[in-house]
Every structure is written in structure tokens, then in C-alpha cells.
């Protein structure tokens, strides 16, 4: 385990919109976005694929990052309503150079 990183309040979260992508693309998009992130960066991932719930959690465990929150979002019905998706909040605990 790396020393606990804190979210850096000065840095806005990076959003990764992986809605409409199937496994393993949401995790790949997250990994790409996290490649150059510094410790303390926060990633917000949106994904509709049912496997993402398990695989983003597994990615965080394998890469020693922290999955802080998972919320199911159901958009309002009516015109412009989309299908339900999940919103993940991931705290990057260490930069890539220090990961191994």
C-alpha cells in the first residue's frame, strides 16, 4: 500500500465519459486518463456497461488506487432521457512512476 493520498482540492476532477462503451473499454479509458495523473487527482468515470461496476473496482484494487464512491444515476424520464449509468469517483493514490 502506498501512503494515503488526499484529494487535492486545487485540482478539479477529471471526467471520463465511457457511457456507451463496452468492457473493457471503460477501464481502458480510465487507465489512459490516469496515466499522467499526479497523486491526489480525482477521476470521475461515467459508464453504462454492467461489467464496469466490477471491473473499475478491480482496477482500483490491482493498481492500488481508491474507489471512493459508486452512484447509480437514473436520468429523469421524458424527452431526452437516457439509460441508467454508474458514476464512479476514483482517487489516484500515487503517480504512475511510483506504482511499481
Amino acid at each position: 500500500m502506498s501512503p494515503a493520498a488526499r484529494p487535492d482540492p486545487g485540482v478539479p476532477p477529471v471526467e471520463v465519459d465511457a457511457r456507451g462503451l463496452r468492457c473493457p473499454l471503460p477501464v481502458i479509458r480510465l487507465a489512459e486518463a490516469a496515466r499522467d495523473a499526479a497523486a491526489g487527482a480525482v477521476m470521475v468515470v461515467l459508464a453504462g456497461d454492467p461489467a464496469a461496476r466490477h471491473d473499475i473496482a478491480a482496477w482500483c484494487r490491482m493498481r492500488d488506487h481508491e474507489l471512493q464512491d459508486v452512484t447509480e444515476i437514473r436520468e429523469a424520464t421524458g424527452a431526452g432521457a437516457g439509460p441508467a449509468y454508474l458514476r464512479f469517483v476514483v482517487l489516484i493514490r500515487h503517480s504512475r512512476d511510483s506504482s511499481s
Binding site: 473493457p24 454492467p50 473496482a57 478491480a58
Partner: peptide, 23 residues
């Protein structure tokens, strides 16, 4: 993995174990 199933749901076994379901 989900992409190999007709339902697009990953294996319930892998999901219940909390392990990676893709690949």
C-alpha cells in the same frame, strides 16, 4: 467475460468474488 455472453452481463461467479470480469 460479459462480451462473450448473450446477456452482456459478466459471469455472476467472477462478479460475486469481486475479481476482474473482463479478459
Amino acid at each position: 467475460s460479459a462480451c462473450t455472453s448473450s446477456t452482456l452481463e459478466p459471469s455472476h461467479v467472477l462478479a460475486a468474488m469481486g475479481v476482474l470480469t473482463h479478459g
